[in-house]
């Protein structure tokens, strides 16, 4: 498919030289300004896959990555790639909300400060617009200097989204961003994800199939490190082509 923002070609990955492959021959396209959900039973490699897309797996000593990951057509594993610049383009939100032990403002401004932005009014602007995009501005505008940990779990996760947005990424990777949240906070994040695709390309891992059905345009189903099937979400959930997908979404295993 052309117009894919992010694309993997025969991506295989193992955590060390003699470990079995955690991902096997994954080829998948994520279209620009869409939400793609990655589902599958736990341990099937969803997080591993996501962390290949912004090279967070580089920190695990001895990982082997084969195949290619293309962002706008260029391979992010090419030797000349600046990994820090890549990670600014491909932002990430983690499973557990992980705000820094700083103030709300400092959390959002962090990425810009890394880039050397010192202008206070410019930083304030970015903090406000990022928090607004994350749907958190109204709740925190009067308490920007309070510690981020004083926020509720759901607010913390939206803060983490704001923090990721603040460096103007093009892609947002989200690894089960609602698994630590209550249903109300989850609903807010889901609503937010649908909003975010106007400006960003979103790849979201979830173990919640209803969630995938509610928020995604495309869905990929992983099983034991392999991509079983990927396609438009409606198709996957109504007429899966692989019996294993059907078993999973009808809850016969998982």
């Amino acid at each position: 498919m052309d117009g894919a923002k992010l694309k993997t070609e025969s991506l295989s990955m193992a955590y060390s030289a003699n470990a079995p492959y955690a991902l096997k021959d994954i080829s998948v396209d994520v279209a620009e300004n869409s939400v793609m959900a990655f589902i599958g039973p736990s341990g099937c490699g969803k997080s591993t896959f996501l962390r290949c897309l912004n090279r967070m797996n580089d920190f695990v000593g001895g990982v082997r990555v084969e195949g290619r990951v293309l962002l706008d057509g260029s391979d992010i594993y090419a030797p000349e790639v600046d990994v820090t610049a890549l990670r600014r383009k491909v932002g990430m939100v983690f499973q557990r909300p992980n705000p820094f032990p700083f103030s709300i403002r400092e959390n959002v401004a962090y990425g810009q400060k890394l880039l050397g932005e010192r202008n206070k009014s410019r930083l304030d602007e970015i903090v406000e617009s990022s928090l607004s995009s994350a749907g958190l501005w109204e709740e925190v505008r009067d308490r920007l200097n309070e510690p981020a940990v004083s926020l509720s779990g759901g607010q913390q996760q939206r803060l983490c989204i704001a923090r990721a947005i603040a460096v103007s990424p093009e892609v947002l990777l989200m690894d089960e961003p609602t698994s630590a949240l209550d249903p109300l906070a989850t609903a807010r994040i889901e609503e937010l994800v649908r909003e975010l695709k106007k400006d960003y390309t979103v790849a979201i891992v979830t173990h919640n199939m209803q969630q995938a059905a509610r928020i995604s345009d495309a869905t990929a189903f992983f099983l034991m490190g392999e991509l079983v099937e990927a396609g438009p979400t409606t198709g996957i959930f109504t007429t899966p082509s692989d019996p294993r997908t059907e078993d999973y979404i009808t809850g016969r295993f998982g």
Partner: peptide, 22 residues
């Protein structure tokens, strides 16, 4: 917590920036 480091690296920080700032 490792979480803080992950968050910092995912925002494009270098190792020294992560150590120094977080």
């Amino acid at each position: 917590p490792q979480d803080f480091r992950d968050a910092s690296y995912a925002l494009g920080a270098t190792q020294w920036q992560t150590i120094y700032r977080v």
